[in-house]
Nucleic acid binder design. Structure first.
Length: 465
RNA sequence: GGCGGCAUAGCCAAGCGGUAAGGCACGGGUCUGCAACACCCUUACCACCGGUUCGAUUCCGGUUGCCGCCUCCA
């Protein structure tokens, strides 16, 4: 069974078969860098990083490209307000972006193109669109002639006429049609700008992605992804531009993730409920944030609330504990045994469940359920009097692989300080002597240092709380 | 007005024709010197009304209630 992906273009799940066997070309719309990203911005980064990881797990070679919009109105306005150069501002927030999403376990893309590095390509692209009659210059701006492109609306499943009726945009004197959108915007006095055949100006928002996707991945890409709200007009416009340019299909699969709400309300400036990743990751373990986001199917909305994140933290902890306990048990395991196949089959079954879930349009909620199945079986196995190294290792390996796909690798255990180790030893002695006063004192002392002790039949183990 | 989504236990969340996965929380028990971890047990008239079907949470129609897009937005 191949991987099934829900394609916004067809509104159906379709078997995913890349153009070139074993290779996937993937483009994800990145942020406009004029501020720290909020958790809503982080969702697609996490979700599609996970998609990429799973495709790689499945043996695909993924060429993953995600852009930075480093020139636009909001950037210019913010730079003016802060009295900062545009380039300084965008560099600053691009660095912050990498720190934020890196903390969330997102790997870097194979390429992170910036608009300002592609101005020449953009101008050339626009020129061709003009030559082909898909664009026109008007008073130093260049607009896309939406009426000219037959497929306009095929992604958002709207006809041009319906779009016009609902359009809240004001009729423009200089545009032929209110749905026409800017490919090139003439610069205002003193504004950062680039030389072009139409005078000084800068690119419009939609053209960038068409150009950068093509420069880095070619005329047709396998997967184009982004937030749901980009479906219209951004992605619709990208299709219009790219397909007018090449005459070929632009993207074969379009994936869109749902929103994040805050306490059941949409994040908005007026409500003042923006949650910046840069702030929240200092309060909440970023691994918990990622786990929380992946616990819901990517196309469904996620409600971000304190208690929900806490419950996710407890769940992640259960997985972590099972894994850590397996590692500890390794120290008291044996080489021989007779039931290894039974247990190893259970491990394989959990891994299979995980794959079935992920094959089905990256159903991470079910994938996580499969991991909990593994937790259950692992915990039961550890109730056995004798555990075998080989079986323990197959559990450990399954945990590591699956969590790696989710971008939640287990942290390496820190070594204990000699002092702490000595305290654990002293406590053991105290317990043997039934000096529970001293024993509990030591346990509390270590607890203050963030070390939690657990006594088992195989001895005392510890973890960082 | 157009397009679309969602309504499942206290909370979160899968399921998409054969009478309900998983997690969190709660309660009871086992284990423990006490804990912690773990294990066992317990918890659902699937929004409402019709229809199709031998059979529907799952399909169709309708109702109600939320939500999104149609403007910059992840």
């Amino acid at each position: 069974m191949s991987i099934q992906i829900y394609n916004t273009l067809t509104r159906k799940k379709e078997p995913f078969i890349p153009m070139e066997e074993g290779k996937v070309k993937m483009y994800v719309c990145g942020p406009t860098v004029y501020n720290y990203i909020h958790i809503g911005n982080a969702r697609p980064v996490i979700v599609f990083d996970t998609v990429r990881r799973y495709l790689e797990y499945r043996g695909f070679d993924v060429n993953y490209v995600s852009n930075f919009t480093d020139i636009d109105d909001k950037i210019i306005r913010t730079a003016n307000e802060l009295g900062e150069e545009v380039g300084e501002l965008t560099d600053r927030f691009i660095n912050a972006y990498f720190e934020d999403v890196g903390a969330l376990g997102c790997a870097k893309a194979d390429a992170h193109p910036r608009v300002t590095e592609h101005i020449g390509d953009i101008i050339a692209f626009i020129q061709v669109l003009i030559e082909k009659g898909f664009a026109y210059e008007a008073q130093g701006d260049v607009y896309y002639r939406t009426r000219k492109f037959d497929g306009y609306g095929k992604l958002s499943h709207q006809s041009i006429d319906e779009l016009k009726v609902g359009a809240r945009i004001e009729e423009s004197e200089i545009k032929e049609n209110s749905l026409d959108f800017a490919l090139w915007k003439s610069a205002k006095e003193g504004e950062i700008s680039w030389e072009s055949p139409w005078g000084h100006g800068r690119p419009g928002w939609h053209i960038e992605c068409s150009v950068m996707a093509r420069e880095h991945l070619g005329d047709t890409i396998d997967i184009h992804a982004g937030g749901q709200d980009l479906t219209f007009p951004h992605h619709e416009n990208e299709i219009a531009q790219s397909e007018a340019m090449t005459g070929k299909q632009f993207a074969r699969f379009w994936m869109h993730n749902g929103y994040i709400n805050i306490d059941n309300e949409k994040m908005s400036k007026s409500l003042g409920n923006f949650v910046l990743v840069n702030d929240i990751r200092k309060q909440i373990d970023p691994r918990v944030l990622r786990f929380f986001i992946l616990s819901v199917h990517y196309r469904h909305p996620v409600n971000f609330a304190q208690e929900l994140v806490e419950s996710a933290a407890n769940g992640l902890d259960r997985i972590q504990t099972a894994y850590t306990n397996l590692k500890h048990r390794l120290k008291s395991s044996t080489e021989l045994g007779d039931q290894q196949d039974i247990w190893k089959n259970k491990v394989d079954e959990a891994v299979r469940l995980f794959e079935v879930a992920m094959d089905d349009d990256f159903n991470t909620a079910n994938g996580i359920a499969a991991i909990f199945e593994l937790v259950k079986v692992a915990n039961l196995y550890q109730l056995e009097k004798n555990t075998q190294t080989e079986v323990l290792n197959s559990f450990i390996s399954a945990f590591e692989h699956l969590m790696e796909v989710l971008g939640l690798p287990f942290a390496d255990e820190d070594l204990l300080d000699d002092e702490i180790e000595a305290l654990i030893e002293e406590r053991l002695t105290a317990r043997r002597e039934r000096n529970f006063g001293r024993s509990d004192e030591i346990r509390d002392l270590l607890k203050d240092k963030g070390i939690i002790l657990e006594d088992t039949a195989q001895g005392t183990r510890w973890k960082r709380g």
